[in-house]
Design a protein around this nucleic acid. Structure first.
Lengths: 204, 204
DNA sequence: ACGCGAACTGGACTCGCAGTACAGGAGGAG
DNA sequence: CTCCTCCTGTACTGCGAGTCCAGTTCGCGT
């Protein structure tokens, strides 16, 4: 319709950048509307309240993250058909991607939301929950495929192993944020990768 | 000095419980003073502002966490002199401890602070940073001891491996919080324990 | 050309919470 | 008796979220 990007997305862009940099609570509506060049009323026209903004941001972020994972492991699959090697390549790509992101990987959105969840309504919390469960399912599936080909050297809980991808990314991002370093998350992923190599070392 | 617990600690207790349950920003001073049975002025007598409260809470928490790790691995060391087995026992104890904590393990304090750091001053951020660096050093030291006895099967960055303890705990707590489950953190620790077993499987 | 609805703007207001200022009170230590 | 520590009470500022509502602009269908 209009050439200039539609206002709603512009608000989301500005808000996302601000929230990633300093957290949701610390980001004022005042500041968002200033950045997006609209009036306060304009903001409330698009979002009922900050909660609605949070929900929209989360939805957008989760979709993007899922698309990223899809793409990443699709590319990995093209490079190698073996499920284990596909996973190892995918994790490597993920680590590289994280390293290239200057400061704020959006992953923090999940943790950030989790730690401020009293500010949000049930809808937002449930969204967050479903996203993590989705990743659990995704990675669990991939690990089961691997386990069909490679006998794990130690028995592991497959749900927990699926969760470990998210856990290691989120944990790494927490460190990164607190330490003001920039490659902790990617290093943690590379360690996890080594774990998988050790765990699935022998063909079944 | 006085028999009834000194007011400052009482404020910290109440505040810590509230913050763990719903986050720092969502905890109002109003509510803290109500819980601690003091006046608003009384609160500001003890703490200049919310920042000072945050700093005091963090200090207390970090001290407690360090004492906990000291105790845990001292007990583990009593049970087994071998550095690897000591570590494995310590992690098991840690996992059990996390599982017994009804809802809110304080670990979240670190992540919580990290994700709201714009609300805090440099002192608080630095405190957080030093705590994590302390744990890195602690675990790195233990892993180096292990590596003197057991040849790691794969080369790993020892700093990152040290960080992985914190990372896995923090990541697990994020999941736990978002999923409203209760044993994710302990499961993640147990997976990390398996990792160590695989990594240090053979004597040097 | 007219009207209608979508996408806004502007201004005035309420409310909750952080933080400030300051005056005063109780109670123990010297 | 007095000073200091540890408070209480009241009254204030200022900010940010959220509400209400009246009015504007502009493209679309008829």
């Amino acid at each position: 319709m209009d050439q200039k990007v539609d206002t709603r997305s512009r608000i989301l862009d500005i808000a996302e950048a601000a929230v990633l940099e300093k957290g949701f609570e610390a980001t004022s509506i005042e500041e968002i509307v200033a950045g997006a060049q609209i009036s306060r009323s304009g903001f409330f026209y698009h979002f009922k309240d900050k909660n609605a903004l949070a929900r929209a941001m989360l939805e957008r972020y989760i979709e993007a993250e899922n698309a990223l994972y899809d793409d990443l492991f699709a590319r990995a699959r093209e490079l190698n058909d073996d499920p284990l090697h596909c996973m190892l390549i995918g994790l490597k790509l993920l680590a590289e991607m994280l390293e290239e992101m200057p400061t704020g990987h959006p992953g923090c959105v999940i943790a950030s939301t989790a730690y401020q969840d009293r500010l949000f309504d049930e809808g937002v919390r449930e969204l967050n929950r479903q996203a993590i469960l989705g990743w659990r399912k995704r990675f669990r599936g991939m690990f089961e495929e691997i386990a069909e080909v490679y006998q794990p050297r130690e028995a592991v809980n497959m749900d927990a192993l699926g969760d470990m991808v998210s856990s290691v990314v989120e944990g790494g991002l927490v460190l990164q944020r607190a330490l003001r370093e920039h490659n902790n998350a990617s290093e943690q992923i590379m360690l996890f990768r080594t774990y998988l190599k050790l765990l699935f070392a022998s063909k079944a």
